[in-house]
Design a protein around this nucleic acid. Sequence first.
DNA 1: TTGACTTGGATAGTGCTACTCGCCATTATT
DNA 2: AATAATGGCGAGTAGCACTATCCAAGTCAA
Lengths: 247, 247
Amino acid sequence: MRISQLAAATGVPVATIKYYLREKLLHDGELTSATQARYDDSHVRRLKLIRALVGTAGLSVAATRELLQGLANPPESGHDLLGVAHRAVTRPAGDDVDVAPAQDLLRRWGWDDQACDRDSQAALAEALDGLSSAGLELPPALLDRYAEAMRAVAEADIGSVPTDSAEAAMRFVVLGTVLVEPVLLAMRRLAQQNVSFERFGGAAITAAARPATAHTPTAPTATAPTATAPTATAPTATAPDRTAETG
Amino acid sequence: MRISQLAAATGVPVATIKYYLREKLLHDGELTSATQARYDDSHVRRLKLIRALVGTAGLSVAATRELLQGLANPPESGHDLLGVAHRAVTRPAGDDVDVAPAQDLLRRWGWDDQACDRDSQAALAEALDGLSSAGLELPPALLDRYAEAMRAVAEADIGSVPTDSAEAAMRFVVLGTVLVEPVLLAMRRLAQQNVSFERFGGAAITAAARPATAHTPTAPTATAPTATAPTATAPTATAPDRTAETG
DNA sequence: TTGACTTGGATAGTGCTACTCGCCATTATT
DNA sequence: AATAATGGCGAGTAGCACTATCCAAGTCAA
């Protein structure tokens, strides 16, 4: 399989494949001559995986590379597997972050903070800090219910790890952790709409007045370079020409 | 209060405040002369809110602007309130997204898809698609448990909306929806670490071998350039870079 | 009053990321 | 032989969130 066929098979432009090769996200093909290399099914699968991580999960190329390297060099401990995944989605915290509020909560929920790495605790602390600096104080009971729900999610996560193959387990843990995040967030929004609909009635959520740029700017999934009609929901005439955002 | 004092009060550089003013995230101060304006407490609060949305929640400036505008011009229907928040965190889906898989799931869970906007359905569909294109098929039972948990989250969300003031309700819904997302994700990771720790034992998650760049690239607070010992979990020395095509 | 300092407003530049383009000698294909 | 494609590489681009600089007009302390 040549690079153009690889591109056709995955919908990823040739230039982008070359970029991933350069960035060591994708392993080299088998060189058959100075200007020819052969790619195979493993490249197709890897490329799809990369697009899922970069697109759907919103990982940076650097984080994707590290995660893939972690997948290739599995740590011995099953527990450290989580580290590979979590490092990809948790930004390292500076020394100045005060994790005490997070640790208070962990204790409150009976979660052993020894099991938790500092970056994740800092992520919780920072998220809570953002909430309160926005002037929004959540009732403790609400936080408890969040914790309860996420604990249930985590138990389902860990309980679903396949036990037959170590490699399958690894894939499940690492990819599942990262790629499920957008699933959960989408589910929450849908559930909110449902609960709100049941409780308050009213019409369905109306379409966006303008296509708001979401927090993950890059393209969603393997989108062929089909720069189709700019948009369907864009109302105003001053729409920029070269939208091509495809969502 | 002058702009430099506003900067001092919030920790946001003057140049950045000017930028937010230009971008209409922050309302203008009261002009007292051609080169002087007075800012007040509302600017301090707004600025903190902006930083929480842009920093903690990871919204783009454009999404933040729309969300703030939505907060300022509340829709009549309580249900449409959710739309304001959800549009800020949901990227608009192209026409080419197939939402059928998501709708199947909604039906399976007894969620009324009439209550759900298309973009959110598409977000779920795309997230699931990313999962499967990464070669990871989740057991349906696992998805069900996710749905159950997120339903519980949503019920807690909606049930906690303050009823005394319409404005408080609006703030709660819009900001809570957006700013709680990182809280939930952090909680899931911490819970996973806990469950994994209990189940598999082993040491706590070790610090990152390298400071992996997270998916939200902007540094929260400068990380000291502490390039410490190479690794704690990396197994082999001659780590084969691209084995295990993981695809 | 004077002179250093600050401000609003505007334009331009920066650093970063994820691509995207163009070139070229070298094959492969026809 | 003629045409097209490829690997490899350097450079260019677009978008984003700032950041820096400039300037005329104003403020404030002495």
